[in-house]
């Protein structure tokens, strides 16, 4: 969908500073123990020939969200106007079936037992604060068209999984 809101992540510019994680928690007042965005630190190879890459993971508002399909009460839906995947906590019964359905392990459960995750900062009426805060502009957002322009000439990566995550990933060349 051309009006889909999507993330852009340039792994060659991510420095694992975790500002995106904290900005998200602080702005959305996310409870302790729950993370809507988290940094993944990946090591490959044997010393001294090691490679280290980072990925900043949050809900990627998939084109075909498996979590929504797996949700018995139908609490998860994809907004037609911008493709943001939202959770209706009034409907969520905390059954947890969305968690194994998500290929990326995104759904989180807090004190009230209900699923919570990134809502693209809809709840606070801001553009996503993780992208605003990123000190190296590794993380940003836009529509798929805007993001492919931004990524022109760069090496692109893709995630495994058939849910069409709304993210453009630039990898380490």
């Amino acid at each position: 969908m051309s009006n889909q809101h999507a993330f852009y992540f340039d792994s060659s510019r991510c420095i694992q500073c975790r500002t995106c994680e904290l900005a998200c928690k602080s702005a959305n007042n996310v409870e302790t123990g729950v993370r809507w965005r988290r940094l993944i630190d990946d090591w490959q190879g044997e010393y001294p020939h090691v490679a280290r890459t980072f990925f900043s993971l949050a809900c990627m508002h998939c084109g075909t969200p498996a979590c929504a399909a797996a949700c018995p009460p139908g609490a998860i839906s994809k907004r037609p106007e911008d493709g943001i995947v939202v959770v209706d906590s009034a409907k969520c019964d905390g059954c947890g079936k969305c968690l194994p359905a998500c290929p990326y392990g995104v759904p989180e459960f807090g004190e009230d037992g209900k699923m919570q995750k990134c809502d693209f900062c809809l709840g606070i009426g801001r553009e996503p604060v993780c992208t605003l805060s990123c000190p190296t502009e590794a993380l940003s957002f836009g529509t798929p068209d805007e993001l492919s322009t931004r990524a022109a000439g760069k090496t692109l990566g893709a995630l495994d999984g058939a849910t069409e995550p709304s993210i453009v990933i630039v990898t380490w060349d």
């Binding site: 500073c17 975790r18 500002t19 994680e21 904290l22 900005a23 602080s26 805060s133 990123c134 000190p135």
Partner: peptide, 9 residues
Amino acid sequence: GKLCPKAYA
């Protein structure tokens, strides 16, 4: 316009 995790907390 940027900050660090410490300021956000």
